[in-house]
Design a protein around this nucleic acid. Structure first.
Lengths: 227, 227
DNA sequence: AAAATAAGTCACTTAATAGTGACTTATTTT
DNA sequence: AAAATAAGTCACTATTAAGTGACTTATTTT
């Protein structure tokens, strides 16, 4: 019996060598831990990021978390800096010149944001995490989002809305954060919100239509400034 | 020495009896536990609601939590059913007849909501809790909020907005949930949102102005339906 | 005022999670 | 292929929190 088992083991070993894939690879293991954090976050939320569970999902010993990252917190931080949420943002380099004060661009951007949040459980959980815990790396992510938005606001919409610029910004803050909230809400609750169910096709459609409509109204209102 | 201590004890005891305030009172103790839950929730959030800590804040032994409520979860549930968030809503019985499709009433209501959330840490934490955890009693609170809102929507704004009623509801969902999010955000993050800082006087003012403006625009838009 | 009951405490057990020292095994270097 | 190094495992300790049995003390009932 013992011999039989030993024999099998030998075969696996040889196959591994043949495939030139080392079984032990620090970098790959580190990545496994980072992936495990992402998976747990998506499925169970940030409060489920326990050392034991992360190690179990990664399929490795938790000792390695301390060896490679220094501890759970540093692993989690590294995970947070590793994600790039703006990879999805269409970098349409051949953008048409903006002549409408960013009206179409803004609408597109907000709708894109909405779809992104709606389809990305990980992002929802990170937003929630950011509301729940003060952590440097979460703050950094929030700041990053601000920087990206600021480009659009400062260069395109502020000049268009002139002395109504602050009002436009505040309105966009409400609309975007509303989109955030409703998406988190749809995952967490079975209730409607003002009778709208963001988890259902119809609710989502209504919300997206309302977003476009609100932005349009803001621009109509802003036109009066520009004549 | 021993006699001296005994003597003091006697005095305290007599005073207690004189004041007719029994030291041991089940109902008062239960209330102490419920208050402790509220206090911990406000200051540390729902994840801090540990049996040991609740007992420590209440100044009583944790055993009583099991004796009186059955356990932490039942205590927490009882706490959640005990709170009445709509106590603050002005029950203006002498309301003027609504002739504007609820325009002024809606604006007032949303602003009032905003102030309430802004000033009520407990409510913020419960909203966050509702986004984080599926718990029957939290769902009930969400449902309760829906019921209250439905009265206004169904009886006043739906008839006014007619076939744009769903759009109005979705818009209100965005505006109110945006107000929720921005208030939670201001407590959790040091970042601005679209350059607006909801934690600062100026930011709050801008948000409230934007809310009023958005509602006004929606009603202007709705007027076209009514002629 | 003695007995019964109920409130409240304390010290303990159990369970879960974090963290680590000593070891084994794979890979690389010589 | 032997030695050195680095990856990975395991069994253990420490810590924290939940939960409970046996007790003490206050209050009520008789």
């Amino acid at each position: 019996m013992t011999y039989f088992i030993l024999f099998l083991f030998k075969i696996f070993y040889v196959e591994d060598k043949a495939g030139n894939t080392p079984v032990r690879d620090k970098e790959k293991s580190k990545q496994k831990f980072l992936n495990a954090v992402g998976k747990l976050l998506r499925t169970k939320g940030f409060s489920a990021l326990k050392v034991n569970d992360i190690a179990a999902v990664a399929g490795l010993d938790k000792k390695l978390i301390y060896k490679y990252f220094g501890g759970r917190d540093q692993l989690v931080d590294q995970y947070l800096v590793s994600i790039d949420f703006w990879s999805n943002v269409k970098q349409d380099d051949a953008q048409p010149a903006i002549t409408d004060g960013g009206r179409e661009f803004t609408k597109q951007m907000v709708l894109q944001q909405y779809d992104y949040v709606a389809s990305n459980k990980e992002f929802q959980k990170i937003l929630l995490w950011g509301l729940s815990e003060k952590r440097k790396s979460l703050q950094n992510l929030a700041d990053e989002r601000e920087v990206v938005g600021e480009v659009l606001l400062k260069n395109i919409t502020d000049p268009f809305f002139k002395d109504k610029a602050e009002n436009f910004r505040a309105s966009m803050a409400i609309i975007i954060s509303g989109a955030y909230y409703l998406n988190m809400y749809s995952g967490a609750s079975n209730s409607t919100f003002c009778g709208i169910d963001p988890a259902k096709e119809q609710g989502e459609k209504a919300i997206k239509k309302a977003i476009v409509n609100l932005v349009d109204m803001l621009y109509e209102d802003g036109k009066k400034q520009n004549g």
